[in-house]
């Protein structure tokens, strides 16, 4: 009975109003999931365990009762979302943002274009409450893998130092994590020993 109210299904609507009045707010079992569209307009998928199987949500504002009948979904109104999730949505931290900075071949020297991107990264750090950042160094496939793991780390460290120096007190060093993926995580896939400027990079993520 409660589930049919949660279904928001037209024929049950009249009953729903009645049930809500009779049972009050607690009348609707509040064990449900709603899928929302992503910021980029795409929508992912969520699998909700039901009584005899899994219910897959694939559309924006599509909902399913957790532990409800498998395959049964319903649409959730914006008003319902605001009522049940308004406070949770309002508390959402800003989504993390990532930047790519590029280097001159075999060095930890930023290209002039990437050097010019630093102020934007610093501004993003400053905009956020209690920011933390990660800096991941990468290389192209020139030279051997062990040497590139080291070079990736040198790039990540020098970028983190530059950000610390330019940023002053906006980010404390213990909120910066540094690592290297060396030549293991190419942005543009190439054979070994290939000079590729787009692979000589660090990824800075501001959270």
């Amino acid at each position: 009975m409660f589930l049919s109210f949660c279904d928001g299904n037209g024929s049950a609507l009249g009953w729903a109003v009645l049930i809500t009045v009779v049972l009050g707010v607690a009348g609707c079992a509040k064990n449900y999931v709603v899928l929302l569209p992503n910021d980029d307009g795409t929508t992912g998928k969520v699998a909700v365990a039901g009584r005899e199987g899994v219910t897959l949500l694939e559309k924006g504002r599509e909902g399913a009762a957790i532990g409800g009948p498998a395959g049964k979904t319903f649409m959730v109104s914006d008003e319902q979302i605001a009522e049940d999730f308004g406070a949770a949505l309002a508390a959402s931290p800003q989504k993390p943002v990532s930047y790519l900075l590029y280097f001159k071949a075999g060095t930890d020297v930023l290209t002039p274009e990437s050097q010019a991107d630093l102020p934007e990264i610093l501004a993003e750090i400053q905009r956020r409450p209690a920011p933390d950042i990660s800096v991941i160094g990468h290389t192209d496939t020139m030279g051997d893998a062990a040497e590139n793991a080291r070079l990736g780390l040198v790039r990540a460290r020098s970028t983190a130092e530059t950000i610390s120096q330019l940023g002053g007190s906006i980010i404390s060093p213990d909120r910066i994590s540094i690592e290297s993926h060396g030549e293991k995580n190419l942005r543009v896939s190439t054979p070994d020993n290939t000079d590729e400027p787009r692979n000589r990079r660090v990824e800075v993520t501001v959270r």
Partner: peptide
Amino acid sequence: KTPAGNIGIRGTHFLVTVE
């Protein structure tokens, strides 16, 4: 995990309420 059942996530934005 929730007391009423588990939720699997395939890269997405969603909301959950649990009584």
